[in-house]
Design a protein around this nucleic acid. Structure first.
Length: 278
DNA sequence: ATAGTCACCTGAGCGC
DNA sequence: TGCGCTCAGGTGACTA
């Protein structure tokens, strides 16, 4: 569920309710997330000084480190008060001094929660991450340089967290459509010019989704409890068999790296000859 | 080093 | 209504 825009939407939705609050207690109802949840005693009574996002991780920074949270495939966070009934799959409550509770809901339990003392970025989940797609260093030259010698499909390349973080299946499909690049082309075959277009498209599709509050699929709900509206503007994801919004060709699907891949056979001819509405 | 597969887990949707 | 199957937004670990 949560891809980068959903995580960023969550970050924005919870930050005003959490930053500046002191974490007075917590309740772990089910510690069996992707890694066992164990929060150290030193975390108690620390104040959340800032919430950052790195890739799809939320970093709730405290005086001595940070809570590192990942929402996996099905996770969501909501700020509630103690009167709100606990639902199935509400695995963790973080309880603050103002009575607010940050509640983690995650049916599939692919998410994770760790506490890491300074330096937070040394944590094993953060140490090897690639660059941020919305940061200043993400551009066509970066992609072209890392693609050298890579025969893997460009879609898989784009979803590789060592290359660029935060581009999940939905937005990889969408960005390749907008750039007019066939998802199956070898990464090394894509030209620098096409990678420059692709980098722009990745940025644009992520920013657009953030502005609309993320993509609502199944049970995703942002931190504010409001659903996202980006799903309505998806061009290819989930639309196999339907008609291309640009040329009326029938969208085709295949599987790449066991993930659903949808593309327009006409608009995405090859390595990116044309720039679609990006 | 690279590329491909597997695993973790629950729930929704489908055909029968 | 139920059973069995496939699929789903992620990603570290494992294998050739």
């Amino acid at each position: 569920m949560p891809e980068l825009p959903e995580v960023e939407t969550t970050r924005r939705g919870i930050e005003d309710h959490v930053v500046g609050r002191r974490l007075v207690d917590w309740e772990i109802r089910n510690a069996a997330l992707r890694w066992p949840v164990e929060l150290p005693g030193e975390l108690r009574n620390q104040t959340i000084v800032r919430i950052d996002r790195r890739a799809k991780y939320l970093l709730l920074r405290t005086e001595t480190g940070a809570l590192i949270m990942h929402l996996g495939m099905s996770g969501s966070l909501r700020v509630v008060d103690s009167s709100v009934a606990v639902r199935k799959h509400d695995h963790l409550d973080l309880c603050f001094d103002d009575g607010g509770i940050l509640r983690l809901h995650d049916p599939r339990r692919f998410g994770s929660v760790h506490f890491q003392t300074h330096p937070v970025e040394a944590h094993f989940l953060l140490a090897k991450l690639g660059i941020e797609p919305l940061g200043p260093d993400f551009n066509g030259a970066h992609l072209k340089r890392l693609a050298k010698g890579k025969r893997v499909a460009v879609k898989n390349f784009l979803m590789n967290g060592h290359v660029v973080v935060g581009v999940g299946n939905i937005y990889a499909n969408e960005a390749l459509f907008m750039a007019g690049i066939r998802p199956t082309v070898q990464a090394q075959q894509v030209t620098l010019a096409a990678y420059e277009v692709l980098a722009d498209c990745v940025r644009n599709v992520l920013n657009s989704a953030i502005q609309m509050g993320g993509t609502t699929l199944r049970d995703y709900v942002g931190g504010s409890g409001d659903p996202g509206y980006f799903k309505q503007s998806l061009n290819v994801y989930g639309r196999e068999g339907e008609l291309c919004n640009l040329c009326d060709s029938e969208l085709r699907s295949l599987r790449l790296g066991q993930r659903a891949t949808v593309y327009c056979p006409k608009c995405q001819q090859s390595r990116g000859f044309r720039k679609n509405e990006c």
